[in-house]
Design a protein around this nucleic acid. Sequence first.
DNA 1: CTCTAATCGAGACGGTACGTCAGGTCTTTTA
DNA 2: TAAAAGACCTGACGTACCGTCTCGATTAGAG
Lengths: 193, 193, 193, 193
Amino acid sequence: MRATTRSGPVRSEAARRAILSAAVELLAERGYDQLAIEAIASRAGVGKQTIYRWWGSKSAIIAEALLEGMILRERLDVPNTGDIRADLGAWLREIGDVLLSKQGQGLARSLIAAATDNAEVGQRLRDAIAGSGALSTRLTAAIENESRLAADAPIDEIAESLVGALLLRALSRSQLDDDAIEGLITVALGHAG
Amino acid sequence: MRATTRSGPVRSEAARRAILSAAVELLAERGYDQLAIEAIASRAGVGKQTIYRWWGSKSAIIAEALLEGMILRERLDVPNTGDIRADLGAWLREIGDVLLSKQGQGLARSLIAAATDNAEVGQRLRDAIAGSGALSTRLTAAIENESRLAADAPIDEIAESLVGALLLRALSRSQLDDDAIEGLITVALGHAG
Amino acid sequence: MRATTRSGPVRSEAARRAILSAAVELLAERGYDQLAIEAIASRAGVGKQTIYRWWGSKSAIIAEALLEGMILRERLDVPNTGDIRADLGAWLREIGDVLLSKQGQGLARSLIAAATDNAEVGQRLRDAIAGSGALSTRLTAAIENESRLAADAPIDEIAESLVGALLLRALSRSQLDDDAIEGLITVALGHAG
Amino acid sequence: MRATTRSGPVRSEAARRAILSAAVELLAERGYDQLAIEAIASRAGVGKQTIYRWWGSKSAIIAEALLEGMILRERLDVPNTGDIRADLGAWLREIGDVLLSKQGQGLARSLIAAATDNAEVGQRLRDAIAGSGALSTRLTAAIENESRLAADAPIDEIAESLVGALLLRALSRSQLDDDAIEGLITVALGHAG
DNA sequence: CTCTAATCGAGACGGTACGTCAGGTCTTTTA
DNA sequence: TAAAAGACCTGACGTACCGTCTCGATTAGAG
């Protein structure tokens, strides 16, 4: 008894990449709501069926592009100068520029919109920004080396608070000024009376 | 010199309310993406044009319903027993039930989706939960009476952090368990090492 | 006992004329199918209800305009030089110019379209061109004075044939060249072998 | 060097026929003005886009149905007993029944209405009744064999006169009685004094 | 070196919803 | 109480995409 082995051509990597690229481009240009599968297919020079064969929805395409680092790839690292307060400030400023600036607002809201109809996008978005990645690592390091954070500081919730505040800003279209950044850091790092 | 007064019939309040009600019902039933203007019109027993005459998009309808308190009306008050930590815990549990429970998740994500294409929804969503309303008031009271919060605690940012974290949970479909609630409160109220 | 006299303003003749004029203008500009009651009202500076109060349909407006001679008023007279053949030729050329020329085709087809949904328009169109008016009169005169037509020539049917042929040309968008005019006259005036 | 052949699915003949049939049915039931593309699509069990993909207007559908002989197929032949006068009488009576009778009036006016916004319908309508088809043929035969028509009788204009008269009758909703038929035949076949 | 099966680009198909236009009715204000 | 203005419900318009389904051509193991 043998496993029946498939014959015929194999999935085209070129098509896959073209689709992801087209999707990312169009997401930036038009926003998630205006992003049409037909437009992706056309831009990628691909038949619609090739998309439907491999992805179940447009949010799944975005999820995969996110996973491949084709969106939000750079500038999400938290610096580590030894001063957690300064580092968080720099990071918030950086990420605020990317996500909340005039040009970037669309992107942030597009990703949020994608997350609303695909759990995986939500997860990956969270991971990409707050996740096991850079932010948590930096906070952990701060506990050990900087004694500014209590040893039992709730790292996950700190990260969530920061990222959640960013999300809320993106939704309400408000910029992140210096005072707000200061305030958020104060909350994150503790401010008991 | 008088202002020229328009003659002719006046906007129908009955139609306006029927539209808002239908929109709220359908939002809960189907979610924002599946919410069709035609369905609202049909459920409200109204012509589509009557909707387009007064609102520019479906998100504008949601924004108005939010303003009228037709969504998220109840259970958003923060209790005041004199113990801010306990009160915040109760409030988070309550609101977590509304927004993150099986039935409620749709609502939270629907509101977020609506916010992604309408700044006003974003603003009002923020106000409705974190706004000048209950949460800030309770935190201010805590500063004065409970000496758990420093006098200069950044109240707005605390509220933003809490609400943002809730929305982030809604996006990534994670429940709010007791540990998470504890963590969030610790962040909110300060936990310096 | 007195007759109860109606109070209040009486039908506005100004409005009536404005409506007919606007209808005639728009009929010429846009054609019957594109002729909208709302456009007539707007152009006439009149409320829609003022139209619906007095007319049952847009074709009824056209019928009245036709009756008032606001359409097809001029150039429909048949000349009478004593030579019926020459006179019919001149008349056909004239009317052919009005109804079948580039600019006029629309008018002819518009009137035909109006006739398809209003019997009165059909009747009046026929009367206006072939009717008790000029054409029949001229043919009758020809019988008496020119002995080219038999005394019992079926005048009504001759007129019908000529006008019908013109309308048929309008429908099939064919011009009326000299040969066709000759042929029609030959048919009209008799040509037995 | 070969012509590049399109790949992909091919036009559905079933859909095409269903659309034409539905259109013809609805034309008879409701008349041209009340004929809605949506109703055709629905009756044919077809998406609207499938109609718009292949036809530019509802009149184009009627034009094609006319070309396919789905309308006015039967009973338009002119009999040939050797007596042109009798034959034309029979034909006029026949066609008058079809087009001008209570049931048929709608059809005649519907076709005329279709012709007013589509040149092709006008042409085909003319061809179907007066065209190179039966009527002209019969008249030509009469010239050769019956010596009732002069050799140079203007056949096209005779046909036009007859059909035009029918058109005018249809527009003015008047029946075609025996006297009128006699008169028209007299005009058609010549009656010089 | 064929045969077979799956992939690909293309795009037609039955649908749903869009946002707009106009129809005919009803309501309000002004004259 | 007619007339202007215009809101209302209805229904159809023509368009954009949806997700499914053919097509014909191409391509890579299996026999």
